[in-house]
């Protein structure tokens, strides 16, 4: 029995470090993940009349951002100040698609934008945004990381947290600055 236990422990010791290497140090042990899966993050599936909970890959790998686990020792990403390199070179039409798409900008979840029948009201209305006369750099920073202007903002830091890439951010700025 004791031998069996030793073998099991040695087995664990061989397996665990290999898994740990795949995750950043401090990643919590109570997160719903399968490190063998490409997207790692799992979502549960409740199977009727079963005592077991099934897990399947989630739509997105969410392991690189912090969790609510007490075991999570990684730092959250701090507010980041950026400089916009001119010219803007953004495409307003692409920007519109990004703003409306739930899986990308999803700006309409919180903001009012032209052409959306069910706008959110958590953030300000962005109708006629051009009339605000904001600089491109100011708008770029607002989307990249709005915490620079308001540490308590609820607006996600799209640049700092890698939700959108630089060109997508430029497209969004171009879209907003063209809303007459």
């Amino acid at each position: 029995m004791r031998n069996l236990l030793s073998f099991a422990l040695i087995g664990l010791a061989l397996v665990l470090p290999a898994q740990a290497q795949q995750m950043a140090p401090g990643f919590p042990g109570d997160a719903a993940v399968d490190l063998g899966q490409e997207k790692k993050t799992l979502k549960p599936r409740v199977v009727p009349n079963s005592g077991r909970l099934e897990w399947m890959p989630a739509e997105r790998d969410l392991t690189s951002w912090t969790t609510l686990s007490h075991l999570d020792q990684r730092d959250a990403r701090r507010p980041q100040r950026v400089t916009l390199e001119e010219p803007l070179a953004g495409n307003p039409m692409r920007g519109r698609d990004i703003a409306m798409a739930k899986s990308r900008g999803n700006c309409v979840a919180c903001h009012e934008l032209p052409g959306d029948p069910w706008p959110g009201t958590v953030g300000n209305s962005l109708l006629n945004y051009q009339r605000r006369g904001m600089s491109d750099a100011r708008v770029y920073q607002q989307i990249y990381d709005a915490r620079i202007f308001n540490p308590q903002t609820v607006m996600p830091p799209y640049g700092t947290n890698n939700l959108l890439n630089e060109q997508e951010l430029r497209d969004l700025v171009a879209y907003l600055q063209n809303l007459e």
Binding site: P28, D30, A31, A32, V33, T41, L42, K43, P44, L53, A58, L62, T63, W65, T67, L68, S69, H70
Partner: peptide, 10 residues
């Protein structure tokens, strides 16, 4: 956000 397991302390 990355979910945790049911029954986790958090």
């Amino acid at each position: 956000a990355q979910p945790l397991l049911p029954g986790s302390r958090a």
